[in-house]
């Protein structure tokens, strides 16, 4: 019994999918074919593919576009007007595809491309770490129950009661700036895993009582075998759904922390940090804000739409 029985019921009421385990999850191939048939979902996939490509091939792309992310171009800005970019739309031109940053003339396209790198690396690492922590601890709590469950559940209560944002900012600002991206991943995951673990724990509890687990035990399976061969495969659907829906959240968190000035340290580019530095310019140079804002929005939107689609498909698979 947790201290928040109501919440768990809510979780189940909201997403019948993850709480209805034990039926085989939708196969990867079926999900793929459905998504390629859906125009909206396909557009999301294409956009995400572009972003990932930008992130992976960042140095190559900026070589083609001609400007690196840290290069100042004083010719592109009007120093008489306090550094506002020359030309309309924030200085968009043949050489600066997305215009330039006011004041120092760094190429926005290059910074978007390199920013994609930061956002994607951090959010994917955070998702991975959260996934591992959430699944392992959730399964431990649900499988062994007793004091193991007590300890893990209390820890989850504690972490979920914590004002995570305040704490993340505080901790990040007081730690030496050393390796910021790693710190970000650790801090985001430390506060993120309980939400996954709570669902996994509940499902493991129901799964552990099912006949096939009993049968495996009767055949002499050890704990580890039961957990990895019998229970884990049945959790696949919910793990996929929860983690896909978590990625956009993490991208947003990273951008938010960078926006508040405790994310990746300048001059490294990150979308959130670009938006943050555009705040003082938004009335004279709205493009400086609009470009990273649009990329951030579209990325989060695409991931949310896809996560939603996958969840519906997994639910249908569970119902079928």
């Amino acid at each position: 019994m947790t201290t928040t029985p109501a919440l768990i019921e809510v979780e189940e009421a909201v997403s019948p999918g993850p709480s209805a385990p034990a039926t085989p999850p939708a196969s990867g191939r079926r999900i793929l074919t459905t998504i390629t048939r859906d125009k909206g979902a396909l557009a999301c996939v294409v956009f995400l593919a572009i972003v990932v490509l930008m992130a992976v091939a960042a140095p190559l792309i900026t070589k083609i576009s001609g400007w690196g992310p840290y290069q100042f171009d004083s010719a592109a800005i009007n120093s008489d007007l306090g550094g506002v970019p020359h030309g309309a739309l924030g200085g968009i031109s043949g050489s600066h595809w997305f215009g330039v940053e006011p004041q120092n003339g760094r190429d926005l396209f290059a910074r978007i491309v390199y920013g994609a790198r930061v956002s994607i690396t951090i959010s994917l690492s955070a998702t991975l770490l959260t996934g591992v922590l959430g699944v392992v601890l959730g399964m431990l709590a649900g499988f062994y129950r007793g004091w193991v469950d007590q300890v893990i559940s209390r820890l989850m209560d504690f972490l979920m009661a914590f004002p995570a944002l305040i704490f993340m900012i505080a901790i990040l600002s007081s730690l030496p700036s050393g390796n910021r991206p790693v710190l970000l991943v650790v801090v985001i995951s430390a506060f993120g895993w309980p939400y996954l673990a709570r669902v996994i724990r509940g499902q493991t509890m129901t799964l552990a009582n099912r006949e096939f687990v009993e049968a495996a035990r009767a055949c002499g399976a050890k704990d580890a075998q039961v957990v990895f061969r019998e229970i884990l495969p049945n959790l696949r659907g919910s793990i996929v759904v929860m983690t896909t829906l978590a990625i956009p959240g993490f991208i947003g968190t990273e951008a938010g922390l960078s926006f508040l000035g405790v994310g990746v340290a300048p001059p490294t580019a990150s979308w959130g940090q670009m938006i943050s530095s555009s705040v003082s310019w938004y009335s004279v140079d709205p493009m400086f804000f609009a470009i990273p804002g649009t990329f951030l929005f579209l990325t989060v939107l695409s991931l949310t739409v896809l996560g939603d689609k996958i969840r519906t498909l997994v639910d249908q698979g569970a119902a079928a």
Partner: peptide, 22 residues
């Protein structure tokens, strides 16, 4: 609703401020 869930609130704040105030 999907769009609204995906807008980080500082982005929305700046857009609104630009459009409505400036």
């Amino acid at each position: 609703a999907l769009g609204g869930v995906s807008v980080p609130n500082y982005v929305l704040a700046l857009v609104l401020q630009y459009v409505l105030v400036v």
